[in-house]
C-alpha cells in the first residue's frame, strides 16, 4: 500500500480511540482539508486491502465476563500442524492461534489464547481442544500480572 499524508492522518486517528461524539471525523476533515466522504472511502480502501483488519470496539475481556484466561501451548509435528491449528481456530473460546518458530528450550510450537467464563469452563475447553486435535503434550501458562497492554501506534 502506498501511504500519503492523508492516509497517515487517518491512520493516526483510527489506530487510537476515536473521539466519542456524533461526528468523530469532523476534526480530522478540518485538519486534512478533505471531506468526510473521502475519509470514509480511504478507510474502506484500507479495509479492502487488508491493512485495516477490523473496525470497531476492542473490549477488555476480564470486564466482559471472560475471567478465566490462559495461554495454552501445544507440541505439534509439522505434518499435523495445519489440521490442528484449524481445529483450534474453530473453537469460539480460542481467540488467537498461531504456529510459531520456537527455540530448543521451549518445545511447544502451537500457541492458543483461550478465554472462558470460569475455571471449569476453561478446563473443559482445553480438554475439548486436546481431544479434538489428539495433541496431548501441552502446557497451560496463565498470566500472573499484566504489565502492559496497549494498541500499537504505527505513526
Amino acid at each position: 500500500m502506498k501511504i500519503d499524508p492523508i492516509d497517515l492522518g487517518i491512520l493516526e486517528l483510527i489506530q487510537g480511540d476515536l473521539p466519542l461524539e456524533s461526528e468523530p471525523f469532523a476534526r480530522l476533515t478540518e485538519q486534512l482539508g478533505v471531506s468526510v466522504e473521502q475519509i470514509m472511502r480511504r478507510i474502506e480502501q484500507m479495509r479492502d486491502e487488508g491493512v485495516l483488519r477490523r473496525w470497531g470496539a476492542v473490549l477488555r475481556h476480564q470486564q466482559a465476563g471472560f475471567t478465566a484466561n490462559a495461554m495454552v501451548v501445544w507440541k505439534v509435528s509439522p505434518e499435523k500442524a495445519d489440521r490442528a491449528g484449524r481445529q483450534m481456530a474453530e473453537l469460539r473460546e480460542v481467540s488467537h492461534c498461531y504456529l510459531r518458530q520456537i527455540p530448543d528450550s521451549f518445545p511447544y510450537n502451537l500457541f492458543t489464547m483461550i478465554h472462558a467464563r470460569s475455571d471449569a469452563h476453561l478446563s473443559e475447553i482445553i480438554a475439548r481442544a486436546a481431544d479434538g486435535t489428539q495433541l496431548n503434550d501441552y502446557l497451560i501458562i496463565k498470566s500472573l500480572k499484566e504489565f502492559k497492554k496497549a494498541s500499537m501506534k504505527y505513526v
Binding site: 487510537g16 480511540d17 466519542l20 470496539a57 476492542v58 473490549l59 470486564q63
Partner: peptide, 28 residues
C-alpha cells in the same frame, strides 16, 4: 447510544473504538 458507550468506556469494559490494523500489511 453515546451515553451508554461513555459509561462502558469509563468502567473500562470498552478499551477503545477505532481500527485494528494488520501489522504485516503495514510492513511491520
Amino acid at each position: 447510544v453515546l451515553d451508554r458507550i461513555g459509561t462502558m468506556k469509563s468502567t473500562g469494559l470498552i478499551r477503545r473504538i477505532g481500527g485494528i490494523m494488520d501489522t504485516r500489511s503495514l510492513g511491520y
